[in-house]
């Protein structure tokens, strides 16, 4: 602040002294005087510092633009919840399938108890191995829960990024080139989404209705 004031004073003094018709020498003197003052107040360390600050400001601005371009709001509101839903669906599907397998095992055990003898023993032995193998569902469920927890942490971090942006984020997003929202022809790649979550999928009756319409 003080530096600017000194510079202003030097310029004002030089201009005051040179009022009236200016010769080439007058102009040269003014410039020399101002430059001398600048050199006195701003040394090479200051200049380097200013350059670095300017570079830092540019980097921050660029980073903000890049962060805005990856749409953290969509990551938080769309992609992460979608990933969590898919993982929950895995747990649900494996639990259901394991339940069906175990229903059948219990039925086999029941039948085995009616048969008796060596065959029954072999059946029970085989069923026991299936029970043991079914514990994969519990392990899978726990592992998936850990992944969901990790996703929640990512979600919280994204939330913090958005909070750090504040209202500035809206401006940055608006300044991003708009995605083309016009209807486009679906490619095969667009159609391949894999298994659908229950609330997104058509049931068999709806498929039949679509097929017969």
């Amino acid at each position: 602040m003080n530096m600017k004031t000194d510079l202003d004073k030097a310029i004002e003094a030089a201009v005051e002294r040179s009022k009236g018709d200016w010769t080439r020498d007058d102009l040269e003197n003014i410039i020399r005087e101002v430059v001398t003052n600048i050199e006195g107040d701003i040394d090479s360390v200051h200049v380097k510092l200013f350059q670095q600050i300017e570079s830092l400001a540019k980097t921050i601005s660029q980073t903000k633009k890049e962060l805005a371009s990856i749409r953290p709001d969509e990551i938080r509101s769309k992609h992460l919840p979608q990933a969590s839903d898919e993982l929950d669906a895995i747990v649900g599907a494996t639990e259901e399938a394991t339940g069906t397998i175990m229903d059948s095992c219990e039925a086999i055990e029941e039948m085995a108890s009616g048969i008796g003898g060596e065959t029954a023993e072999k059946l029970v032995e085989a069923v026991t191995k299936i029970y043991e193998a079914c514990s994969f569902q519990d392990i899978t469920g726990q592992r998936v829960s850990k992944v969901v927890k990790a996703l929640k942490e990512v979600e919280e971090k994204v939330e913090r990024i958005l909070n750090a942006f504040g209202d500035e984020y809206k401006d940055l997003v608006q300044s991003e080139p708009q995605q083309d929202t016009a209807p486009k022809e679906l490619t095969e790649e667009d159609l391949l989404n894999g298994p659908q979550l229950d609330h997104e999928a058509n049931d068999k009756d709806e498929i039949d209705r679509l097929f017969n319409s």
Partner: peptide, 15 residues
Amino acid sequence: DYRTMLRIIRNLLKQ
């Protein structure tokens, strides 16, 4: 807290 595991242990204990 996993129904599958409860069922596995119950069946193994029954055996």
